[in-house]
């Protein structure tokens, strides 16, 4: 690319190095904090719940199944908090903003990470040690939420993001400056911009089309609607089964409380 006016080769070199460092940091953080490695998931790709096991999940009470899912989500969130902590610049934000970004964005990151654990051949997701179809979650009483999650997993897996792209996309979504109540919007904006530049650079290097980033970004509204639907379902569950909801892991209750 031609050198922009007023910009020396040295400055461009610095910028390039800076972007390279961001990419390395975010990708390393993503890999270190992935609950399951790609190799592990590949090895388990053909471990499914058999019909008897599926039936036993289906016949559980809504309360038992909600509890089970809350625990699984909580485990995943702990890894996402660690991912955030390892992203350069995240810990330089004030703790109020760190919490706001995590509360608003950890479900988005979880949904992006989920496509690593999705098998498009038989439309199953890795859950509690094996791959499960949507019907396994019947007892939750949230068919619309479950089918929206499977739909998203399918469409995200079609994009075929590399681990690098997934890492940078997760970080960019987590660092969304439009989350309400942030104290230092500009600081978050700056961080997100850098990550997006790194993502663009990464896509260019791999010879990916311009469309790929657009496809990734186009999934954000569906992700946001899934997050909202999850909160609605949780609110309803809390009304019907307040005691069970109170026994959910404290981190889950903290992250998804209004």
């Amino acid at each position: 690319n031609p050198v922009p006016e007023g910009c020396s080769q040295l400055e461009i070199g610095h910028t390039f190095l800076h972007i390279e460092r961001i990419t390395q940091n975010v990708v390393k953080s993503h890999i270190e904090t992935s609950q399951f490695s790609t190799e592990e998931l590949r090895r388990l790709a053909w471990t499914f719940y058999n019909p008897e096991e599926t039936h036993s999940y289906i016949s559980r009470s809504a309360e038992t199944m909600w509890q089970k899912c809350a625990v699984q989500i909580t485990n995943a969130i702990q890894y996402i908090v660690e991912f955030a902590k390892r992203i350069s610049g995240f810990m330089d934000l004030c703790q109020n903003d760190q919490i706001i970004l995590l509360k608003a964005g950890c479900m988005d990151v979880l949904l992006i990470r989920m496509c690593r654990a999705y098998n498009p051949i038989n439309n199953t997701l890795f859950f509690d040690g094996k791959f499960a179809g949507a019907q396994l979650f019947k007892a939750l009483g949230c068919d619309d939420l479950v089918s929206a999650i499977f739909e998203l997993a399918k469409s995200l897996s079609r994009i075929q993001m590399t681990e690098e792209e997934m890492a940078l996309f997760s970080a960019a979504v987590l660092l969304s400056p439009d989350r309400p109540w942030l104290t230092d919007v500009q600081k978050v904006q700056k961080l997100q911009k850098k990550v997006y530049v790194a993502l663009q650079r990464c896509l260019q290097n791999k010879g990916a089309s311009e469309e790929k980033l657009a496809k990734m970004v186009s999934k954000l509204p569906l992700m946001r609607s899934i997050c909202n639907l999850h909160i609605d379902k949780l609110e309803f569950f809390r009304l019907v089964h307040p005691e069970t909801a109170y026994s959910f892991p404290p981190l889950y209750r903290e992250v998804f409380s209004s």
């Binding site: 702990q78 890894y79 660690e82 810990m91 760190q98 919490i99 509360k103 981190l251 903290e254």
Partner: peptide, 20 residues
């Protein structure tokens, strides 16, 4: 702070579930 006690702790902890 009380409302987000666990998140505060996780953010301040140097050991994480990843390291354990």
């Amino acid at each position: 702070k009380e409302k987000h006690k666990i998140l505060h702790q996780l953010l301040q902890n140097s050991t994480s579930p990843v390291d354990l």
